[in-house]
Design a protein around this nucleic acid. Structure first.
Lengths: 242, 242
DNA sequence: TATTATAATTTGTATATACATGTAATGCAA
DNA sequence: TTGCATTACATGTATATACAAATTATAATA
């Protein structure tokens, strides 16, 4: 199917990112966009709502849609962007090294966490991430083997996400994340250049597919001085009354 | 105006939070909900999309809407929830102490940051947050004086947000946040029970009103062992192709 | 001129309809 | 019973219309 509203959204995103629509300016009115794209107003509104949710514009009733300044404070890393996608965006020199890659036995703590069938297995992947020659991130991934059957070192060095989505055709849908600070472990010291730091920032993620099956648990351990989390958040409509 | 979809959304949220709709179960179909609430399908879909965005349900094409398990991993703090709202939700014993509250001179670094008119002033509020008898958070707020003219110690001890929204009638719309880890400053040591910690988690927030004016800058400094950030994130539709 | 009232513009909400597409149930045939 | 095609049902997309509500522009009035 076409999905006009997605096309329009992406076209407008490009206009903003390329600076052809500047921050503070007003987008053409919905009516104007209708005739320009030859679509109905609801379709335009779907595109504009996406822009709004992702922090590109602010809609103001009676006035119009105002382009926001995305560059002032760098940008969202939120969502489910992977390390690789993120690195590419920021243009940093990065490197991924696969430390471990094997299937772990059933009946372990992680198996329960991932709600696996009893006879299946789980992939354990341990990777270090280098930025500017320093090992600053330790990623420990646990992926359900009954969902992802084949997994190679090369795939892990590239991007697991793009393999899962593009090659396997699985749709990653949402994740629950937790960010905390914890003392460094022996494992951290072995794989990360912790220097004098005695704590690391830990991001624990539970990643779900479209059919709500949990298929991955990830622990991403960052050296604190290299950690940065940027987020764009809207005050949600209904929640504030509860 | 009525805003039926908001009513329906909040009613369904209650059903889920009270356990009358259990995780894994399916919501009634959109068609069913239409006749039950006596509305059109688009209105139902607006309510369901809100549920989806806030992590209550997962919509699966051809099947229906599945209730997600919000309790397994505690819950979002994301968005713009304030310290007070958050504390009340988690049921923790908390206390807010106002350390400083005054108007700062123009032509300071913060004035530029807040893009103030030259002749106006800015409120500076410094507060400590106690949890279970320990001072673990230091909040430094800077608020534009030309937008919020009156501000008292009592208001700051309560909730600035509810004062701004409920009393002043201003609509807080969105925020850009950054989370980093930084060394403890003298100011931190003075106001926080840092104990042996030599670093703090810093959340810098830029808060905007509906008309896109930046009106507040906040630096929230947390003792690392008491810091926790929980987030629910959907893989956004358009972004992954860029 | 300055103020006020009115009209035009713009976004928000609600409804109705049509068709596409994915999933589940049904029934028929081998 | 099994396998396959059909049908029914569910959500996704697109269109059209109507009215509400906020803002801005215009016109009328003092």
């Amino acid at each position: 199917m076409k999905k006009k509203y997605l096309d329009i959204y992406q076209e407008l995103v490009l206009l903003i990112r390329e600076g052809k629509l500047l921050a503070g300016e007003r987008l053409p009115s919905e009516h104007e966009l209708c005739s320009r794209y030859g679509t109905s107003r609801e379709t335009i509104r779907k595109a504009l709502n996406l822009l709004s949710q992702n922090g590109y514009i602010q809609k103001v009733r009676g006035k119009g849609s105002i382009v926001l300044d995305r560059n002032k404070i760098e940008f969202p890393v939120s969502g489910l962007t992977s390390f690789k996608e993120l690195a590419e965006e920021s243009g940093q020199q990065t490197n991924t090294r696969v430390v471990e890659l094997y299937q772990i036995e059933p009946n372990q703590k992680v198996m329960e966490l991932l709600q696996c069938p009893k006879d299946s297995y789980v992939w354990k992947i341990v990777r270090t991430r280098e930025m500017d020659g320093e090992k600053v991130i330790l990623d420990k991934d646990y992926i359900r083997g009954d969902i992802v059957e084949r997994l190679t070192k090369t795939i892990c060095e590239d991007s697991i996400y793009s393999f899962i989505e593009d090659d396997l055709g699985l749709a990653i849908s949402f994740a629950k994340k937790e960010i905390v600070v914890e003392p460094v472990t022996e494992e951290d010291e072995t794989h990360i250049d912790v220097e004098t730091h005695d704590q690391v920032v830990v991001i624990r993620s539970f990643v779900y597919l479209e059919d709500t099956t949990l298929f991955q648990y990830t622990e991403s351990r960052h050296r604190p001085d290299k950690f940065r989390f940027v987020d764009f958040a809207r005050r949600s409509k209904g929640e504030r009354f509860l």
